[in-house]
Each structure stands twice: as structure tokens, then as C-alpha cells.
Design a protein around this nucleic acid. Structure first.
Lengths: 206, 206
DNA sequence: TGCCACGTGTAAACATCGTTGACATGTGAG
DNA sequence: CTCACATGTCAACGATGTTTACACGTGGCA
């Protein structure tokens, strides 16, 4: 698709696309190296020229998910910034809503990204960058409009708390109180976001 | 152990204990029916006399985890109630801290309980009860000392938000910013709990 | 132009797994 | 005592992740 240069096409990209498609559609637990290779029309062992093992493959797919998450919340943050005279305290609400929306829209991808399907220790290579980018936007949203006098460590803990809250909501909605994204009431989301925003502001300025 | 009545002992309990031990120690992803049966000294297929399949087995283990979680946070809530003249608003902080402590102390069990290792739809049988018990205590902690005038739906959303916050913190600590339970700073936990408590109170009384 | 090394894909095999069906066996009820 | 049934065994099936030895095709260098 991108660069059909050599031998059999661009296998690395083809496998990633197929894996991403499968995870989106059926979840990562049913994903198989053999089946992906089959759907791409290639021998299973060819996969190992491009990914060290299954976990490595899954991590690469998750990294793509983080890229999409980052894109989504970056849009929210940027449009917020472009609005003149907007209340700085709603930045977190905006970004948080974008985050939750992404999670509910891509349940299977989200589960892969934040589950333990791959060992986190080895695969920093793929993930660190993607996680960091998303993380930075959440940071910026929390820090938006708070006075400089607040110590750094407190800011970091506020950021950690903010992430906990939005992630926890998505995680519970997907795995413990499972329902489709349409069934999740706006009011529930508003509640978490309101509580998060006021709670974090209170923590920062206490 | 409990009732060595017939044939080979109480296999159901023995398998559950072995499975629980393995999950605690190595995580659920490496757990295997065959290995469990081997360690209990029984043929793999005997497992299917007691559990319909692997997911069923995992769900039963998770249910035990929920029982332990419930015990832990119930202790927190009860000791809180027994203290005379205690500030009602700290109930959530107490229970939340117990919740987080459990998650950090039992990372592998927690991951099983709140991950997607088993399909949630079928296995309500095992889990519904265990989840419900834990849920009720969190509910009670949120409702502690709030005026009766607050509408039910708002209370429910506050409860949902509270659970999101503590669960999200544990989940991120285990899978995204992985570190041992000793490395998690008390201050981080205090931050989430403080933000959660004030944020939820603000949402309830806004 | 010719050649060769290397990146890439193939083929076959291995160990393991979840799961099933037919068979054995011990136990408790009548 | 006996017989039905719950429980456990044995052997097999299909499928998986992974490795090893081999084949091919292309790009760089003489």
C-alpha cells in the first residue's frame, strides 16, 4: 500500500494493519500470529522477521492505539486553547471527555493498551513514546491556569490523580459494568469530570 | 483439606486453591488447566467435571479475589464506624485507602479481577455476588453523612465516580507506571483520595 | 555485466495447550 | 448387595507460538 518495493510488499505494515483490524473488531485475546499471517497471505514464520514474538506484535498494535488516543485529546485541547476567554478550569473537562470518548469508542483497542497482554518491561521501545505524548497533553490540561506557586510534586500528583479518574471510568465501564458506548449516560461522564476537576483544583490549592 | 470425603479428595477446592496460588504468584496469563491439574496430581480432563472451561475457572478464582477485597474494605469501614465522633467525610478516604492497598498488595489477582481474561457476560454467576458485596461497601462510604435530600441518581453517579477514581489509580499503578507496592508514595495515594473525596462532595452538593 | 551476501519468505517440525469422547472406578442410596 | 451416577483416566483432535534449516530475489560491488 505505502511502498511496494521488494519481495512480497511491505509485510511489517500489512501485519500491523491486519492485527489492528482484528483487535478493533474481536479483541486481542483471540488474535493469533498464524491467523494474521494467513489473512495477509504469508507463512506464519515470516512474522518473526518483523516482530520478535507475539507480545512484541501486540505492543506495536497498542502503540498505534496510543497514537490515536493522543490525536483525539490533542484536538480537544487545541480547540479549547483557540477559544478566546475560555475558563481555564474547563481544560481538564474537555480533554477528559475526549479521553473517555475514545475509550468507549474503541473498547477492544483500549483494553489492549491498558491491559497486561504484553509485558510492560521489555516493550518500552514501542510504548514509551506513545504513552508520553498522551500524558503530556493531560499534564497541560491539569496545569492550565493554575498559579506558578504550586510545587512541582503536587502538580505531578494532581496529574496522576486526573489520569486515574478518567482511566478508571473507562476501565470500569468496559470491563465491570459492561455496556455499549451508547448506553453510557452523558450524566455519568459529567459526574466524573465535574468531581475530578473540582477535586483536583481543591487538592492543588488546599 | 476441608472435606476429604470421596474418590480423590475435594478436587474443586484443590484446583481453586492451586489456581489462586498460581495467579497470585505468576499472573493469570501463564495459568494453564493442564499445569494446575498436574500440580494437584490429577488428569487435566478431570478439571472439566468442576469447571465448564478455562474462563469459568478463571472467573471462579476472580470471585475469590473479590471476596478478599470485600473483606479488606469492610474492615476499614467497620472500624471507621466504631470510632465515635469521626468526621463522616473521611469514610470514603478510609475505604478508598483499603481498596488501593489491596490492589497494590495483590497485583496479579487484581489484574485478573478487573481485566478481560474471561468474558463477563456468561460468568455473572460467580462474579455478581462478589462484585456486589464490594460495591455495597463503597456505596455506604460515599453515602456516609450526606443529606437525604440528594436525589438517588446523583448518589449513584457519585458512587460510580468514586469507584472510577480508586480503581483507576490501582490500574495505572499496576500496568502503566509499573512499580512495586513499596515504591508507591503515600503522597500519591493521599492526593487521589483527597481529590476524590472533595470532588465527590462538591458534585453531590453543587 | 556478473556475482554474492543479505534481507526476506517457506516448509517442516516441536512442544504445548484447551477440549472432547469413550471408558474405568469408587461411592452412596435403595 | 447392587446398580446408577458422580468422578477420574486415557487417548486423541485441532490449534497455537516458536524454531530451525532451507529457498529465493534483490541491491551493492567488482
Amino acid at each position: 500500500m505505502t511502498k511496494p518495493t521488494y519481495h512480497h510488499g511491505n509485510l511489517h505494515a500489512a501485519l500491523l494493519a491486519e492485527g489492528l483490524r482484528h483487535v478493533r473488531q474481536h479483541g486481542h485475546s483471540s488474535l493469533g500470529i498464524r491467523e494474521c499471517a494467513r489473512n495477509v497471505g504469508v507463512d506464519p514464520s515470516a512474522t518473526y522477521r518483523h516482530f520478535r514474538n507475539k507480545k512484541d506484535f501486540l505492543a506495536a498494535i497498542a502503540a498505534e492505539g496510543f497514537r490515536e488516543l493522543t490525536t483525539q485529546i490533542r484536538i480537544e485541547f487545541d480547540t479549547f486553547k483557540s477559544e478566546e476567554g475560555s475558563d481555564s478550569q474547563v481544560a481538564l473537562v474537555r480533554v477528559g471527555r475526549g479521553y473517555i470518548t475514545f475509550g468507549l469508542k474503541e473498547p477492544n483497542l483500549y483494553r489492549l493498551m491498558f491491559g497486561d497482554a504484553f509485558g510492560r518491561n521489555d516493550l518500552r521501545k514501542y510504548l514509551e513514546e506513545g504513552i508520553h505524548d498522551a500524558w503530556r497533553i493531560l499534564q497541560a490540561a491539569v496545569r492550565e491556569g493554575v498559579p506558578d506557586s504550586i510545587p512541582e510534586v503536587r502538580l505531578q500528583r494532581a496529574e496522576s490523580a486526573a489520569w486515574s479518574m478518567v482511566h478508571g471510568f473507562v476501565s470500569l465501564a468496559l470491563d465491570v459494568q459492561p455496556r455499549s458506548s451508547e448506553e453510557v449516560q452523558q450524566g455519568e461522564i459529567d459526574a466524573v469530570l465535574h468531581a475530578a476537576q473540582t477535586g483536583i483544583l481543591a487538592y492543588l490549592t488546599k
